[in-house]
Design a protein around this nucleic acid. Structure first.
Lengths: 295, 295
DNA sequence: GGAACTTGTCGGCCTTTCCGACAAGCTGT
DNA sequence: ACAGCTTGTCGGAAAGGCCGACAAGTTCC
């Protein structure tokens, strides 16, 4: 029932809220404890009936059997549903360091994207949307700035294939980019509120435009208690099990690629080690962060 | 490229603007003269180069090879495109009079429909649509008339599968049925103007609602000159040819079922014969017409 | 031919949303 | 710290569209 979403759109849609993107045949670690935190009602492993003997296993090594990258029908949010087969973990396989992190297969499809957290004004007031200048200039077709008030109509496709039209105008004093006509309909249609994020994406040479949504926070991110307990039981029994995960800022990831775990071990990272890393911000800028590795 | 439309919706959509609906294997008469009238620029058969020797043939008997019932992408209008194979006409086949007009195969799918020519107010003023009482009562789900101002939201699918939502309210003094919210968007979306017709249809036990459009008149009804001449040439040469026809009030039908022609002959109708016939009006009412058969 | 009913049009008014003014906040120097 | 740029919020104004009043047109007796 949920809409299947192509990989590149799915990635841009979740942004950096999801560090690991599942692929078929990948080896991963499943963290039951993390999973149980996302249950809609608390799971007390000790008192489950019949007992969940998984309690002592902090992680379960699995291979991914099937991957579905999807968009939620109600909220438009990108999420994944995967099938996992528990299998023995035989320790890290030695690879020459040059081959340790194979570069992702080069995408033949160009994609640029820009996300913005909706302000009060964007979400309700007046019915318009302030487009960050960088977004307008890097994603949308160029306006004719010779005109008095340059404007164009944008056709943007959402994750379900529905096309939305927006009037993009450059006006006011000082001049700024705005979405006017059509924006209000989008906001009500998608039930967007103040702190939700909207992601505009430009794909390929035809420069087709897409739009994704990251919700501020929602009850929906919790999975049914039965679903979670069921997955834990099956995982422990060694049976194939299914997991649904909504990537979201601040939501624990309980499926982690083996590579990532092993890299931590290999690099001998430990609390206190100084790190410097490039972080992609919500608004697409990159910043450097200096700090200490904590856990 | 145009959308394919199921038979029952197609029928309701054209209403009585099309007396003959093509079916594969049907025997029909093709009237080149009628076809040429619908060319975008006049066809002078005498001066066509190379010559169109079809001039003397007033009708060409054909069998239908292929039928496509379609909806125009731009205007939503129902039209058909058929493939015809010219074949010799061997005269009427004798049938016992009881079998002369076989009843159409009983449809397992119920369909009711109601059409209305848009008034000035419907098409522009105020943004609402006056629903004829009979339309509201026979097609739309029953309102709760105990309420002060009964209202409901209708989901209606157009010929391309797009769903439109309309607020249906029963208000005013005297009370009347109206479409308000959503109607204006439909009018602009479909570029409807004053004399266009809108057809609401209810299908099957689930009472799904559909909407079709009959345009008031449009240049588009004329076919390309080359297309028409080409069909005429091929027909005369006995080759399979293609014909596109937009049924419209007052547009000559140049494909006529053999049955219809033969019935005229059989009944010995001639100019001056008195007739009395049931005519289905645009607004779905039936009236009796007394008059004289003219041609 | 008259009463009852149906529905097209209109002006009023409420809601939506488009607009520039202004200023807060950020960036880069 | 300051100048210049970007963009969030606001009140005014225009447009869109919902409303009942009214009356023209129709149907049914």
């Amino acid at each position: 029932m949920p809409t299947s979403v192509p990989l590149h759109l799915w990635k841009a849609s979740v942004g950096n809220a999801c560090t690991y993107i599942p692929r078929v045949d990948d080896k991963v670690f499943y963290f039951p404890a993390g999973h149980s935190e996302l249950s809609s009602s608390p799971i007390d492993i000790a008192s489950e009936e019949p007992p969940v003997s998984v309690a002592t296993a902090s992680t379960i090594h699995c291979q991914i059997v099937e991957v579905q990258l999807l968009a939620d029908n109600d909220t438009d949010e990108a999420f994944y549903r995967i099938l996992l087969q528990p299998c023995p973990y035989r320790g890290p396989i030695f690879k020459p360091s040059s081959a340790v992190t194979p570069p992702p297969p080069p995408s033949t499809m160009s994609l640029s994207w820009f996300s913005k957290v909706l302000t009060q004004s964007d979400a309700h007031n007046g019915g318009g949307y302030s487009i960050p200048r960088a977004c307008a200039e890097s994603l949308f077709p160029p306006l004719n700035y010779a005109d008095d008030t340059p404007l164009q109509t944008l056709s943007v496709t959402d994750m379900h294939g529905t096309v939305w039209e927006f009037r993009h105008i450059f006006r006011g004093n000082p001049k700024r980019h705005l979405l006017t006509t059509g924006w209000s309909r989008f906001v009500t249609g998608k039930s967007l509120t103040k702190e939700d994020s909207v992601v505009f994406m430009k794909v390929g040479v035809e420069e087709e435009l897409f739009v994704g949504i990251r919700r501020r926070r929602r009850m929906g991110e919790l999975r049914g208690r039965g679903e979670v307990v069921n997955a834990m039981r099956k995982a422990w029994a060694g049976e194939t099990f299914e997991v649904t995960y909504y990537p979201r800022k601040g939501t624990l990831e309980f499926i982690v690629g083996v590579d990532a775990v092993e890299r931590v071990l290999r690099e001998r990272w430990a609390p206190g080690v100084r790190v410097k890393m490039a972080v992609e911000m919500e608004d697409s800028r990159k910043i450097w962060v200096h700090g200490f590795f904590i856990v």
